[in-house]
């Protein structure tokens, strides 16, 4: 049976993990120097939130073989919950993040339980339909303020120590959160849990015959992916200072698929690269209106037809390393 990702994920070998750790340190060091380079920090923070979102999405498709076309519902739900908690309840940032992430977690338990009943193409359609259901719920419930969204969200003091309204402080908080979540995903992929997940992706009947409860593993992966997507959504509230319907819309679900695809489905660093590319593209092409949509569509077509491994996947294949 063919598998959605062309990137082979060999059983974790010592060398593979060492390569990835080196790449991780390089990435962390590069990102840590951003505030000294004069690069617009807002752009990088936004990209980091999307990078985390894309990594969480990639966990499901790259290692579970499940393509979710509705991941925006987790990003948006956490965003709304965090924004509401911060603005209306006036809680501190860390509580706000917990509220948002917990909301996304609860949603992922329910939607995961429903959607893993089908696989492949149907799974994609079901998750898309569920996220559209969530979209309409948020469109109609009063606490989201409909088309306006929740705006002017106070950033506050994290743990009473870090003033998140200062761009540099906020940048490092976002960076640390991103790196921790990234390590968590990396750990999950290389854990026994991750290995079983890969086994199910490659050959589900065989994994089942070996006594693994495939559905439980898939649900766990779904919940982990949805919760971390929610974490990204909560962080994004501090950067954008608003929560709107854009984050729950299907176009957002499509964008995150695109980020993971262009970077490389099933690669560890691909989604990060993809997120930076797409966010940068939106930033610089903002004046071209809907041509951005056309370009995104064209990238989808080109990626699917010519390089399905994505950028990082192609590089990794070139050097015969796993990244």
């Amino acid at each position: 049976m063919s598998v959605i990702t062309d990137n082979s994920t060999p059983a974790s070998s010592g060398r593979g993990i060492r390569d990835e750790m080196v790449a991780f340190v390089i990435m962390a060091a590069l990102l840590a120097t951003v505030p000294f380079t004069g690069i617009y920090p807002f752009f990088v923070m936004q990209a980091l939130c999307f990078a985390l979102f894309a990594c969480a999405f990639n966990l499901l498709i790259g290692y579970g073989g499940l393509l979710s076309f509705g991941h925006a519902m987790f990003l948006g739900t956490a965003g709304y919950f965090t924004a509401h908690a911060l603005k209306v309840w006036g809680v501190s940032p860390e509580i706000g993040i917990v509220v948002g992430t917990a909301g996304a977690c609860a949603l992922s338990v329910v939607t995961g339980w429903i959607s893993i009943r089908r696989q492949g193409i149907y799974f994609a359609m079901i998750t898309l339909a569920l996220s559209q259901l969530v979209f309409f719920v948020y469109l109609q419930t009063p606490f989201t303020h409909g088309e306006d969204g929740i705006q002017g969200i106070p950033q506050g003091m994290l743990f009473g120590l870090f003033d998140l309204s200062k761009p540099t402080t906020l940048y490092y908080v976002i960076l640390v959160a991103f790196l921790l979540a990234f390590l968590l995903i990396f750990r999950a992929i290389n854990s026994p849990f991750g290995e079983v997940l890969k086994a199910i992706r490659e050959n589900e009947p065989r994994a089942v015959s070996l006594g693994y409860k495939a559905d439980q593993y898939k649900l766990m992966a779904f919940i982990l992916s949805g919760t971390l997507s929610g974490f990204a959504g909560s962080l994004k509230v501090f950067v954008a200072q608003n929560a709107s319907l854009t984050d729950v819309h299907w176009t957002m679900s499509g964008e995150i698929v695109l980020m993971a695809l262009i970077g490389g489905l099933g690669t560890v660093f691909g989604p990060v690269v993809g997120a930076f590319i797409i966010v940068a593209m939106q930033q610089y092409l903002a004046g071209f209106g809907q041509w951005v949509t056309v370009i995104q569509g064209a990238i989808f077509v080109i990626c699917v037809l010519t390089f399905r491994r994505g950028i990082v996947g192609e590089i990794a294949a070139l050097f015969k390393r796993s990244l």
Partner: peptide, 19 residues
């Protein structure tokens, strides 16, 4: 190829046409 690539490709086509 995997069926999901068809979904991704036609999604891209839809974005181009609608855009």
């Amino acid at each position: 190829l995997d069926h999901l690539y068809g979904l991704l490709l036609t999604f891209g086509i839809a974005l181009i046409i609608q855009g």
